[in-house]
């Protein structure tokens, strides 16, 4: 999956989690939760949705690495590539 495809997927998932916000207006280095006003319950649903859609399981210990759109996309691209190599 390309970076662009991952970003598009993330926007779709975020739109579902925060329907009143416009995820595509999210700046790359903005904190996703703070900007879109997402609480811990919705964050967990977002992580579950990423797992369901992209097949990538994000361990709790990595939550601190995926706070912005940039860092999350980079993380998922790396995980996606790692999966392909296996």
């Amino acid at each position: 999956m390309t970076e662009v495809e991952i970003i598009q997927t993330l926007f779709q998932l975020l739109k579902h989690i925060a329907p009143d916000m416009e995820p595509s207006e999210l700046k790359p280095d903005e904190n996703i939760r703070e900007t879109l006003n997402i609480d811990s319950y919705d964050t967990l649903q977002f992580i579950v949705a990423i797992n369901d859609t992209l097949g990538i399981e994000i361990p709790e210990s990595d939550y601190g690495k995926i706070t912005t759109l940039n860092s999350l996309t980079k993380y998922l691209v790396e995980k996606s590539n790692a999966k392909l190599k296996i």
Binding site: S40, Y41, L44, V48, E60
Partner: peptide
């Protein structure tokens, strides 16, 4: 939580 699938994690 480390032993649970993502959808069963606890908050």
């Amino acid at each position: 939580n480390s032993h649970k699938p993502v959808k069963n994690r606890l908050l």
